[in-house]
Design a protein around this nucleic acid. Structure first.
Lengths: 333, 333
DNA sequence: CTATTGCGTGCAACCGGTTGCATGTCAACC
DNA sequence: GGTTGACATGCAACCGGTTGCACGCAATAG
């Protein structure tokens, strides 16, 4: 009721109102079993009446526990991340933690700066698809609990999305549909995920004796996909697997512009399931598991915070092909 | 050098090393002009040698300034928000502020809880498309600086995206293409944006003597759009304006399933430009201005923090129609 | 009936800074 | 030469909680 002007009802005010010492008020919240039930009740009543909310900052100062974690991603607006962010947020909430969000703009230096900026006010950090060097990551990890997503650094707890399994399935799927000549449209050369996807498609294509070519879309974007179409067609392929869904959509747009029907004349597979069944025809793609990754990373971090033991854990999430509407039998089959 | 085990070199240690009082060390950082240049130099040297970093939490406790703001959205994964979040993040960073991100899950109660949770550790809050009641919003705004996005509450600084202008243009655009019978597929009835859009389409259709019907997709989603198609066709319309892009994509999928060609046989307009030109055919839609809104909200908040004057500002961002590939001449024209 | 145990509570120090006020020093001024 | 004032620095209280320890009291054991 009586909301003071500074928005600050303090523990002292509650103590006075309840006729107890400040320490008792504190304990009513942090160690209720130390107090008699009636006292706890009385304190909570008074607190309620005054609109008392414990001050996190003050608590953090004396305990060293902030109840905050940081999540740093290269680009919030990249559709791959929002579901992950959301999942992380929800999971953190379950442990009553707040989430700081950082956007590195795909820039290693900015990432480094953010890490330093957050360092003072969080208990742990989650780095998703970092662009930072291994050394810097290791350095930060030494200072405080840190979990990686989609980056494989020995000795640091990490969650890896193995898009390789899904890409393998995609290749097999295309082979079954009778495609003999396919293209992999690759993403950023520094990306761990791209290396993994490229290797997976090569392996699977080799096993099935498919003709495989590569076309590079160095930046994964709609534009890049659009511009890759000529190169793809020049290879004589009847199907393409793209680094991600956005690139795949660019390829689809380019094919449509040339009057090439999908999936009748050409098949396209995306990766990451960033768009869901939203498009027409719905994109055949590889599931991303980004939701699980976000959730798992947070719960991993929570565990690390509880038991200071920072064991070297590496969780791998396998992916699978989601067949929708952009793949079909090879022409002439 | 001597990084203590707890990562914590304190002001006292620096003071002792430099042979000054704690207060002088503090001033060396916050008010250097109060000290003699030599003293400042000596202190900074000592701090450097010990690896001292000011403790954000402690500073916040005594000054009340955390250097943090909170951003609360209904759903991080809704493609409307990520660009806004990113813009807010970038703008906050310019003032060296960190951003807490909250996800209310479209739930008023959770929103209220988050607000309380953040209250203690941020200087200001941005509430985007809140689902909370006006009273609760006013109550929170009384406690600390708060800026609204897409919610019109008298007396509270707000940034409003006026999708009405764009929707009006869309209606005019359809009229010019010869459509005489159109449908507006509405979103959540409690949404301020929905009311605004509905009013705009009614006004514009009235001015041009178009037949207008309403179909309700109470939750804005792909599924809802898909299921609205029968109702839309039953109205005998040749074009639809959807509450948002995701709903529009659902409608497109439904039309495709019935073999109805877009834009040849039917025209569809989305709203919010959440997908960009990504889809095939690319969706004609209304620009969202969500990036500007995020940026503006943060800079507004920063101003409020500087000059405690919380004047009642209301910024309106107009929107415009973006014509792409899902609108064409009415059949038989 | 006294000694022991144990529970509920209060006292006071502490977390790491910030800041109003007091003190000390020295140069300038009358 | 004594007074004034500006300037540099230190002292100590404070921000709002947490927590080790001591105290008082009641129940139990001897």
């Amino acid at each position: 009721m009586a909301a003071e002007r500074r928005g600050g009802v303090t523990i002292s005010q509650v103590a006075e109102a309840a006729g107890v010492a400040r320490s008792s008020v504190s304990r009513a919240y942090t160690r209720p079993h130390m107090l008699s039930p009636e006292t706890v009740e009385r304190i909570k009543m008074a607190a309620e009446r005054l609109g008392y909310v414990p001050n996190h900052t003050a608590r953090a100062l004396s305990t060293g526990r902030h109840g905050n974690v940081a999540l740093i991603v290269p680009d919030v607006a990249n559709p791959f991340f929002p579901p992950m962010i959301r999942a992380a947020q929800v999971e953190a909430d379950r442990s009553d933690f707040c989430v700081f969000l950082g956007n590195s703009d795909e820039d290693p230096e900015k990432e480094d700066k953010l890490l330093g900026r957050f360092a003072g006010q969080v208990e742990g950090i989650i780095l998703a698809s970092p662009r930072l060097s291994d050394e810097r990551i290791v350095a930060h990890a030494a200072l405080r609990p840190l979990v990686l997503i989609n980056r494989n650094v020995e000795g640091i707890p990490r969650v890896l999305i193995d898009s390789g399994t899904g890409i393998g399935e995609a290749t097999a799927h295309l082979a079954e549909l009778g495609h003999r000549n396919i293209v992999y449209v690759s993403g950023p050369s520094t990306s761990w995920s791209n290396k993994q996807r490229r290797a997976a498609v090569r392996k699977a294509a080799g096993e099935r004796g498919l003709d495989l070519s590569f076309v590079s879309a160095s930046v994964p974007s709609f534009e890049a996909g659009l511009q890759a179409v000529d190169a793809i067609l020049a290879k004589g392929a009847s199907a393409a697997i793209a680094f991600d869904d956005v690139t795949a959509q660019g390829i689809l747009a380019g094919l449509a512009a040339r009057g090439i029907g999908v999936p009748k004349d050409f098949s396209v597979v995306g990766c990451d399931d960033a768009l869901g069944p939203l498009t027409v025809p719905a994109l055949t793609t590889v599931s991303s598991r980004s939701v699980e990754a976000g959730k798992l990373a947070v719960s991993l971090l929570m565990e690390m915070l509880q038991s200071q033991a920072l064991r070297d854990a590496s969780y791998v999430l396998e992916t699978h092909l989601i067949v929708r509407g952009t793949t079909g039998r090879a022409p002439g089959q």
